[in-house]
Structures are given as structure tokens and as C-alpha cells.
Write a protein that binds this DNA or RNA. Sequence first.
DNA 1: TAAATAAGTTTATTTTATAAACCAAATTAT
DNA 2: ATAATTTGGTTTATAAAATAAACTTATTTA
Lengths: 96, 96
Amino acid sequence: MFKPLDPLLHSELRLATISLLISVEEAEFPYIKEQTGATAGNLSVQIDKLSAAGYIEVEKTFKGRRPCTICRITSAGLRAFEDYVEALRSYLEVKS
Amino acid sequence: MFKPLDPLLHSELRLATISLLISVEEAEFPYIKEQTGATAGNLSVQIDKLSAAGYIEVEKTFKGRRPCTICRITSAGLRAFEDYVEALRSYLEVKS
DNA sequence: TAAATAAGTTTATTTTATAAACCAAATTAT
DNA sequence: ATAATTTGGTTTATAAAATAAACTTATTTA
């Protein structure tokens, strides 16, 4: 009846982050922070979790001499998102 | 960009419960328990929260001499669900 | 050169979800 | 008849999560 919802994606900030990364090739930490309205600490933690799950890949480089964290969605992340959306349908669709 | 998600509905079991109640006029505790696969304790807690928020109304009666808890969605609950679904779209839709 | 800002990370706190334990009444088995 | 089990829950305790607060290091700007 109700399909289980991947707890890694069923989180407002992580879902927003993945949603963002889907349409954007790659994104830097401050951009994600700005678009989601998250605090840096919260975002840092959630990015770590998405990364640990293999849903995104994180590249830590430098821009000049400032740190620069770049995130990209992985194919596993994309698949997980699609599965999540599919599972959500079981909750949102009107039953006859 | 991303609309906030009502934390009361952004919970697997509470969302399933509301989703069920939308299509069903009313439902008894054991039925919701069976359909959602929840434990009685967990369901009891989540029903209380939905009730405290005014999203459902709970009628505690008896069936013969056994307790019988009947739940119905309220108009506030229906509206909250619709708002939640609308907010979710901002996370699920493909951005140009 | 002192203060403020940027870009994060780490740690602590609060909330939440969930499960475990419990209760009362009714039913079934011995 | 009474002991064990099931039904229909509630209450309390525990585990996990989200979030914020504090901190670090380097860089600008006043």
C-alpha cells in the first residue's frame, strides 16, 4: 500500500539539496546554502550524509586560496531520487 | 525557491495516516495500523499529534465493550495536506 | 593592525521517531 | 473455573535525527 520512503531523502534539507543538484551539473557550497536557506553547519552535516550514502560526490578544492566545496549528484543519487518520488506517489495519489 | 514542508505531515507514518483518511470518510485504529504496517505504540503517538494539530478528529467509543478509536480527517487537515503536496512540488519538479 | 567576513567543520542540544513495556478487558483453551 | 492469549490501545524509555551554536583558519576591509 504505502512504499517506504528512503530516510536519507525524506529530509527537507537533503531533499532540497538533491533537487538542486539534479538540475545543475554541479554546485558550490555557498550557492546551495543560499538557495536552500540553510545554515552552514546544517548543510555541512547533510552534505556529509548524502556523500556517505554515495548520493553525491564532493570535491574539496580551492578558489585562489579560499576553500571551495563542489557537489555533484551521482547516478546512485539520481536513481534514489527517482525511487523516492515514485514511492511518494503512493502517499499522494487519490485512491479510488 | 523551496517552500517549507509542514513538519507535521513530513513524517512517513503521519503522511500515510492522513493519506488514508482522505479517501475513506473514517477509519478505525486497527485498520490504520494494518494498512500502514505501524506498531500500535507508534501509531498512537502519531495520531495524538495529528489530533493535537487539529488535522484529524478522534472519537473514542466502544464496540460492544471493547474500546474503538475512530479517526476522521478535518477540513484543516485536508487543507494542510493540499498545501504540503503543493510545497513538495517545489522539490520534485524538474527545473528548466 | 584590528575588526569583520568567508567558508566550512565539530560539537552540543533539542526534537522526533520508534520501540518496548505496560494496562484493562475479553476471549479461548485446559 | 481459571490460566493463558489476544485485542485495543496508552505511557514511558531509547535511539536517531535535525538543527544550532561554537569554533577554526584564512582573507579582506577599515
